[in-house]
Amino acid sequence: MTVDKEMLAQFLLRMGDNTLVLGHRVSEWCGHAPILEEDIALANTALDLIGQTQLWLGHAADVMGEGKSADDLAFLRDVWDFRNVLLLELPNGDFGQTLMRQFLFDAFQSILLPRLMKSTDAEVAAIAAKASKEAAYHVERSADTVVGLGDGTEESHARMQAALEYLWPYVGEMFASDEVDAAMAAAGIAPDPATLRDEYDALVGKVLAEATLSIPSDGFAHKGGRSGKMHTEHLGHMLTQMQWLQRAYPGNTW
């Protein structure tokens, strides 16, 4: 079954923009972590995510067929062209909020990526094969940290509960499927994310219970990132930094 190129490109941008935006956010920690081991872990996580971005956006650029590169997509698009979920563009907050966000995303990736390894798109399957190994240890680390801090001191527990309450309304967007997802599912390229929700809730529920944290009962979900309809105010500020050199000195090679 042939798939609409534009739809496929949208799917790939969603994958690549997620890793790009989160990789950027995590890299903002450089040199400021609570302990040296965490500086290493944060840089390592950011590095994995940026590496995955090169692959996802590289494939997106190929599918788009306009002669663009992964760098063109990362550094020369404006906010309205980004397709990451809102969760990942939110500011880092404290270390607890950063690791809670990481866990909520890692859990999603650790379920999605192994399925993408069976994608009918050989390139998607190959990228997923590499990325799923990284996601497996990312989720192990972020889950451990969430448990350690949730079930740590009174203060660490309170901070983690606050982080969860702030971030939880952004979780639902990862599963809010639309016509792009329907097309990917029909072509066997990717599963409809809505079908991953039960597995996600089971994994996240288990870890958060171990962390002695309570999932907010309100099921409201902010949306607008993966469709590009409405990002948060935060993304534009991120792009002013990320894209500055490419914008100020157009056409140069670095």
Binding site: L20, G23, H24, S27, E28, C30, G31, H32, D39, I40, A43, N44, A46, L47, I50, G51, T53, Q54, L57, A70, D71, A74, F75, Q241, M242, W244, L245, Q246, N252, W254
Partner: peptide, 24 residues
């Protein structure tokens, strides 16, 4: 710290990855 000062402004994905690997 002086390298972290430019991680968020690295001009390409490859340069950003190289710099992240270096600070790590």
């Amino acid at each position: 710290l002086p390298e972290g000062n430019w991680i968020t402004r690295a001009p390409t994905l490859e340069r950003k990855a190289i710099l992240l690997a270096k600070v790590q």
